[in-house]
Design a protein around this nucleic acid. Structure first.
Lengths: 118, 118
DNA sequence: GAAACTACTTACCAATAGGTAACAGTTATA
DNA sequence: TATAACTGTTACCTATTGGTAAGTAGTTTC
């Protein structure tokens, strides 16, 4: 599409850009769900997280966690236990997504209720 | 992954499920951005929306708008003008995503600032 | 010594998302 | 008359996403 004048104010553009940035970081089917699970639980080991999020394959979980770690939203800690366990938790940066998680969670719950009514 | 006991409370599960539901409805690269643009602007004609959202192709915009319309988040109105123009706007249901849009926008703005500092 | 649990990885495959470019049908404008 | 603007559609292609199934490697339990 050709560029042309836009009547939007700078503040609006900023918010739209913000949404886009957030969206890009949380791309894919699972990242927000993983973050929500960690947000609720604090910590999770790999397998527990995988069991908690129904339908996710280890390969996918592993890849998503790596992405989130790369963007410093999730911290990975290898525990000094036998056998080795690994803990995943949100970084402060990841925790700062609380409003996003809460808003999405709340909206989804209401949405589901409104569907069931019909 | 095999199912096993989960120690999470029902409320947590509910929130995670809510996030998942919302995520599924807003899947893809563009839906949240489109909603944010409509949320800020109120109404948009097809081309204006396409021009406002940098990088989106008409085909993709068309498809995303249809998806959103199908889920009753966006309303499409053909105007009685010559040549025909079409207006897109959020439905009340779409507007109820305000907290999600605001949280994502705000977080993205902060995120961008924190990147620039480094 | 075999099975099971930990945390993944690897190979393979299919569906989808998303992009480009061109075109269609209508109407107004120069 | 031809050009441009409106709202899309169509054909085509590629990269990514996400899924299955199996395997790897270390440790512990039966």
């Amino acid at each position: 599409m050709k560029k042309q004048k836009s009547e939007l104010t700078g503040i609006c553009r900023l918010q739209v850009q913000g949404v886009k940035d957030t969206q890009d970081l949380l791309s894919g089917k699972w990242k927000t769900v993983i973050i929500a699970a960690l947000y609720n639980n604090g910590k999770f080991r790999f397998m527990d997280l995988g069991r908690h999020i129904e339908g996710i394959a280890p390969k996918v979980l592993s890849k998503e966690l790596k992405d989130l770690e790369m963007n410093q939203l999730v911290k990975r800690t290898v525990m000094d236990t036998m056998p080795v366990t690994v803990e995943y938790e949100l970084t402060p940066h990841g925790k700062s997504l609380n409003k996003v998680v809460e808003a999405m969670g709340e909206w989804g719950i209401k949405y589901r209720k409104s569907i069931l009514k019909k």
